[in-house]
């Protein structure tokens, strides 16, 4: 049985192919003008390496923003369910997933089978998303990748209290004008970011009803400072995944594809 999962996000598109329950390939590309193009290109890229053709796929499930438009996928599932399912497959003891992407922040609880139990997702505001870190690192004049390690260099992280990212930017500029140290401000920003994700997770009691392991996915998972602060807030280890966290959505979609194939096609 060969199944595929495809995840078209706002910045990247990912495809993952599974054969008999094992991952045989996955690929990530930056998005093309339309979700349909992105999906076609990334799937083609992934298939090429394996020598498979589109017709060889028994079932394909799509997720992400462009998920309904992809003609070769037979079903679409929300990225919330897919992220949970994917992370759970990587580490079956996982029950909590925090996904912090460029535009969204999601807190996800899955059951012992990886099915969605509860979730929360931020409203429109950019506070608590990767976008927030981008804005702030720009204001600090440092590279986004440099931001995370500041948590470990600072002895005195400053409190960034504003929740709105626009106002937080003012606040950071004000701190810089006051002559405060970039390291301490950066460490404070990581702390503030973690606090926001923690608040969202608390709204579905992920903080006090966690029955297994907790992981963080999405671009912000690469920020070691945010992860460190989240561990402190949850008073729990944030486990890392054996696979690129970015691929979790496509992996989850492929797992759903396998499930639907078994349910609908193979009798």
């Amino acid at each position: 049985m060969i199944v595929a999962g495809i995840d078209v996000g706002s910045l990247t598109a990912k495809a993952l192919i599974m054969k008999d329950g094992e991952i045989i390939d996955f690929d990530i590309i930056t998005v093309r003008p339309t979700p349909v193009q992105s999906a076609g290109d990334v799937m083609e890229k992934a298939l090429n390496k394996t020598g498979l053709k589109m017709d060889d796929l028994d079932y394909c499930v799509s997720t992400g923003y462009g998920r309904e438009q992809i003609s070769f996928s037979r079903k679409s599932i929300s990225e919330i369910s897919c992220h949970g399912m994917g992370a759970h497959w990587c580490r079956p003891s996982i029950r909590g997933v925090i996904d912090i992407g460029g535009q969204d922040c999601k807190a996800i609880i899955v059951d012992k089978d990886g099915n969605l139990d509860n979730f929360a997702m931020n409203d429109k505001c950019a506070a608590g998303t990767g976008r927030f870190l981008e804005i702030i690192s720009k204001a600090l004049g440092i590279d986004l990748a440099e931001l995370g390690p500041l948590t470990f260099k600072s002895n005195n992280p400053l409190k960034i209290v504003r929740r709105c990212s626009v106002f937080a930017e003012y606040e950071v500029i004000f701190l810089l004008a006051e002559g405060k140290d970039v390291t301490d401000i950066g460490a404070g920003v990581n702390e503030a970011m973690a606090q926001r994700a923690f608040s969202l997770a608390s709204s579905i009691n992920l903080n006090n009803k966690l029955t297994g392991e907790l992981t963080v996915t999405g671009g912000v998972a690469k920020n070691v400072g945010v992860i460190k602060n989240l561990e402190k807030l949850f008073d729990a280890e944030i486990v890392s995944l054996p696979l690129d966290p970015q691929i979790m959505g496509a992996l989850g979609a492929a797992l759903f594809a396998r499930r639907y194939y078994e349910k609908e096609v193979r009798v």
């Binding site: 599932i77 969605l116 139990d117 997702m121 429109k124």
Partner: peptide, 26 residues
């Protein structure tokens, strides 16, 4: 529970949460 404007413009974000809600309902 959803927060929205009087007019809904960012349909995609609503759709994600609503679909996830259906999936949660099984």
């Amino acid at each position: 529970l959803l927060d929205r404007d009087y007019r809904i413009t960012d349909v995609g974000r609503f759709r994600t949460r609503i679909e996830a809600f259906f999936e949660k309902l099984g």
